[in-house]
């Protein structure tokens, strides 16, 4: 219940800045328009790439772009901000689990996007046979991606600034997650390896699932759960080790 309230507080904070929400939507729209323009030019000669014609490529890119609203890197920088502002001390003396409160915050932060953007896709996903599995995959992926970001965030105990990592993450997510192009247009052996990386699970795999062209959903859910556990335990180990470094900063 208390973590639900943390999420609710985050929703309230997010709603305070309506203009920021609008700007975020607008910048994503520009990003998507540019990607679509590039692919529109590629398909202007009437070719098909692997199994993609112009229509299916646009559907894929719109969905993967929408997904990138939900899978963002804020949790990766949360710990760094807390450490450098000294507010980690405030969090540490509260009787709450920092990992869970971070997940609740991220859920709250993304709740509005989830409602505005995801409901039409849920309705769309209902059209195919894997509705429940698709929803489970989406939820598990959300937690898995948060776990990955939370684990990476622990480098803040050793690094002075974590923000230079942001462009690196964006590039990795866009390429390995299949945001710029579907991963299955790559050569088969490369695709077989890339499709199981955490970024592909939240990007390419989820987009394919929501368009109804994925049949191994249960397997992907299992892999995602496996990743979640790994990242969670790594977070615990690194957080504990990092906390020992958290000494010199004044209260």
């Amino acid at each position: 219940m208390r973590y639900l309230y943390i999420a609710l507080t985050e929703i309230k904070s997010k709603l305070t800045y309506r203009f920021d929400l609008g700007v975020e939507f607008f910048s994503k729209l520009i990003e998507l328009t540019m990607t679509l323009a590039v692919w529109n030019a590629v398909f202007s000669s009437g070719i098909t790439i692997r199994d993609y014609d112009k229509k299916s490529m646009i559907a894929y890119l719109v969905i993967s772009s929408v997904l990138s609203f939900l899978y963002t890197f804020e949790p990766c920088f949360r710990l760094g901000k807390l450490i450098h502002s000294g507010r980690l001390s405030v969090q540490l003396i509260r009787p709450i689990n920092l990992w869970k409160s971070g997940l609740a915050e991220q859920t709250g932060r993304k709740a509005i996007y989830f409602i505005i953007l995801f409901i039409p896709f849920v309705i769309f996903a209902k059209l195919h046979n894997y509705f429940v599995l698709s929803i489970i995959l989406f939820i598990v992926n959300f937690v898995m991606f948060y776990s990955l970001m939370a684990f990476i965030s622990t480098v803040a105990f050793w690094l002075e600034n974590t923000w230079p990592l942001r462009p690196v993450f964006s590039a990795v997510y866009s390429l390995l997650g299949g945001i710029l192009f579907p991963l299955d247009i790559l050569p088969e052996p490369v695709y077989r390896i890339l499709v199981y990386n955490p970024f592909a699970l939240v990007g390419h795999v989820t987009a394919k699932t929501l368009t109804g062209s994925n049949e191994n959903i249960a397997l992907y859910i299992l892999i995602s759960v496996f990743y979640t556990l790994i990242f969670y335990f790594l977070y615990k180990i690194f957080f504990k080790a990092g906390l020992k470094k958290y000494e010199g900063v004044g209260l």
């Binding site: 507080t9 904070s13 305070t16 800045y17 502002s85 000294g86 507010r87 001390s89 405030v90 209260l251």
Partner: peptide, 11 residues
């Protein structure tokens, strides 16, 4: 902590 707020700034 006089210099570390626990209040949510926007609310």
């Amino acid at each position: 902590l006089g210099q570390k707020s626990q209040l949510v700034w926007d609310l």
